[in-house]
């Protein structure tokens, strides 16, 4: 669905714009003339907040992949329909429950800071990865599997040589969705004290400083668009 003809350009343009905006002084120079307030000098420079943000998202994605893929493989083995249904139901529930509610519910368990945010990112990030991986593995044509069995492949060989390669595009699309949405979720995480690019937005809102809000929002948007475009490169072109 996403990407398209402009995909390759987007993978150049968004990261370039992001890097440009991260050069100290560039973003304030762009925003201050709008007369909405002063970006000023936050306690932590914007590039540091961006790195924190990116770090949270990447760490969450790694954990999500490490948990989600084996889970999806486990529940799609034959004779485990009930487990697959359970995981699909839970994933569907995860898709439905608001992100912010998931994050907020982690606070009572883990306190404030980056920990509840990371937990929220992992829980929420698991949703597209597991659901896509299940769909992808389920979608492998029975003909291909039958042929593989006919050639004498063991169950493990079928998984590694047939099922995973065939399901790869769908799985990658899930990882991409998961990562991009998590950039957004991590923004909200600033409300739990996780740092990141949500911090200037929330501070700006409470201080009535639209310039500060704008600096965080622009960077968060650029980060999401950059990651989306970069990860689109790994998907096969239609």
């Amino acid at each position: 669905m996403r990407g398209g003809r402009g995909g390759r350009w987007a993978a150049l343009v968004w990261p370039a714009l992001l890097l440009l905006c991260l050069i100290p002084g560039v973003l304030p120079a762009l925003i201050d003339p709008l007369g909405l307030g002063e970006v000023g000098t936050p306690e932590r420079p914007l590039w540091q907040l961006t790195l924190t943000h990116l770090g949270l998202v990447v760490l969450a994605s790694v954990v999500v992949l490490a948990l989600g893929l084996p889970l999806a493989v486990a529940v799609t083995r034959p004779g485990r329909d009930a487990l697959r249904q359970l995981s699909e139901t839970l994933v569907g529930l995860g898709q439905t429950v608001p992100t912010f509610a998931v994050l907020a519910l982690a606070v009572p368990a883990l306190g404030f800071g980056w920990a509840p945010t990371l937990l929220g990112l992992i829980v929420y990030g698991l949703v597209p990865v597991v659901s896509n991986a299940v769909v992808g593995l389920q979608g492998v044509s029975p003909g291909a599997l039958d042929a593989a069995r006919g050639m004498g492949m063991s169950a493990r060989q079928r998984l590694w040589r047939v099922e995973l390669p065939l399901a790869r595009p769908v799985i990658l699309a899930g990882v991409r969705t998961s990562t991009v949405y998590n950039v957004g979720t991590a923004t909200v995480g600033a409300a739990l004290g996780a740092g990141g690019l949500g911090e200037p937005i929330i501070n700006g809102l409470s201080q009535q400083n639209t310039a500060l809000v704008l600096s965080g929002a622009v960077l968060a948007a650029l980060l999401a668009l950059s990651l989306d475009a970069l990860m689109a490169l790994s998907e096969p072109r239609p």
């Binding site: 957004g184 979720t185 949500g198 937005i201 929330i202 929002a217 622009v218 968060a220 948007a221 668009l225």
Partner: peptide, 16 residues
């Protein structure tokens, strides 16, 4: 693709 919080932030400037 743009985070919802960022979109809220981005809309504040033009609306105000």
């Amino acid at each position: 693709t743009i985070p919802s919080l960022a979109l809220l932030g981005l809309l504040i400037a033009p609306l105000s």
